[in-house]
């Protein structure tokens, strides 16, 4: 059985039903751009979850993963010990093969002081027709720790997924947290991203969201960065393209609550067809030494970019596609 290629698995082996589900979810994981070879190697820390079943857990020294089933999902606690520096990312594979259902992930990430780690999360729902996925995450990045969290979604072609991704992030003094959420393949369905980050002195938070909506997809991004400690820095960056009748709403808030904090919100949304895009930035400054800025470009593709590519021989549709794919990191 392929499942036996994974060492340290905590779930039963020799069960054909489990193997089928495991392989199916890995296939979906690969569709979403996930590197299955690394996942199957057994040399990287990983969690594989299908619906409310924990199909596999692999740990490496310095990383503790506890994953327990809930009636409608999974509760996971992932801890990286202080000072641990992982050379390979921790892989998180969440998904459902079914067309309908519910998956709730309650996740608690604890990154110890001085640790350096990267998480690669893939959420895949390739056959979804009427499916709900809820992620409630608490992320604590310890002092001088460094966490890079990359989350890619694949929702299949039907637009039948409703995703609510919520995260409360705290970054201790000198800590650094970089996250990228991307949903740029297949349909979106309904998406709510709701992240709040509190950043202490000299900490850094960088939240990036990239989404490509089509059909009647509905996208709402809410990101709040509170720069609470002196010299804390934060960036909330959104890149969204919508076409057909899709609708996107972006609400970003940056608070400069302490001296010499630097915050920036950077929103670009490209609109095609009958799609609608909204952007509402909020800037709150509570220190006369803080500096918070905002930039937004909403609307059609930049004409000069378009004409530059057309002057190389690309027709308008292809040129727009190149620009959107570049913006969404899909090239």
């Amino acid at each position: 059985m392929k499942a036996q290629q994974i060492s340290g698995i905590t779930t039963p082996r020799g069960d054909p039903a489990w193997a089928r589900e495991y392989n199916a979810i890995l296939q979906a994981y690969e569709q979403a751009g996930g590197p299955t070879a690394a996942l199957r190697s057994g040399r990287v820390a990983a969690v594989v979850v299908s619906a409310n079943r924990v199909l596999g857990v692999v740990t490496v020294p310095g990383v503790t993963i506890n994953a327990e089933p809930l009636p409608d999902g999974v509760q996971a606690q992932i801890m990286v010990a202080p000072g641990v520096r992982l050379e390979r990312p921790v892989h998180l594979c969440f998904g459902m093969i079914a067309e309908t259902g519910m998956q709730r992930i309650v996740a608690d990430y604890e990154i110890g002081a001085g640790a350096q780690v990267e998480f690669l999360a893939h959420c895949t729902f390739p056959n979804a027709r009427d499916l709900r996925h809820i992620m409630d995450a608490v992320v604590r990045v310890g002092a001088d720790a460094h966490l890079r969290y990359t989350e890619a979604h694949y929702h299949g072609p039907y637009g039948g997924v409703s995703v609510e991704a919520r995260a409360g992030i705290t970054v201790d003094a000198g800590g650094r947290y970089f996250s990228t959420f991307s949903l740029v393949h297949g349909r979106v369905g309904r998406l709510l991203i709701d992240y709040t980050a509190d950043v202490e002195a000299s900490g850094v938070v960088d939240l990036t969201s990239m989404v490509y909506g089509a059909g009647d997809d509905d996208i709402e991004v809410r990101e709040t960065v509170r720069l609470n400690g002196e010299k804390a820095r934060g960036l909330a960056k959104t890149r969204i393209a919508v076409r057909d009748r899709a609708h996107s709403r972006v609400f970003t808030t940056a608070e400069g609550n302490a001296p010499r904090t630097r915050g920036h919100m950077d929103c670009a949304e490209i609109v095609r067809g009958n799609a609608v895009a909204e952007n509402v930035p909020t800037v709150i400054v509570r220190s006369d030494e803080a500096h918070v800025t905002h930039e937004a470009a909403i609307g059609s593709v930049n004409r000069k970019e378009l004409e530059t590519l057309m002057a190389r021989g690309l027709d308008e549709d292809t040129a727009v596609d190149v620009i959107i794919r570049g913006m969404l990191g899909r090239l």
């Binding site: 890149r239 670009a268 057309m310 002057a311 190389r312 021989g313 620009i323 570049g326 969404l328």
Partner: peptide, 25 residues
Amino acid sequence: LPMHERARLGLTLAWQEPARFEGLP
């Protein structure tokens, strides 16, 4: 002719202040 068809005939332009493209290598 639209721009891209002129380009396909072998005509092109280098702008004085060229555009920038996010994410395009």
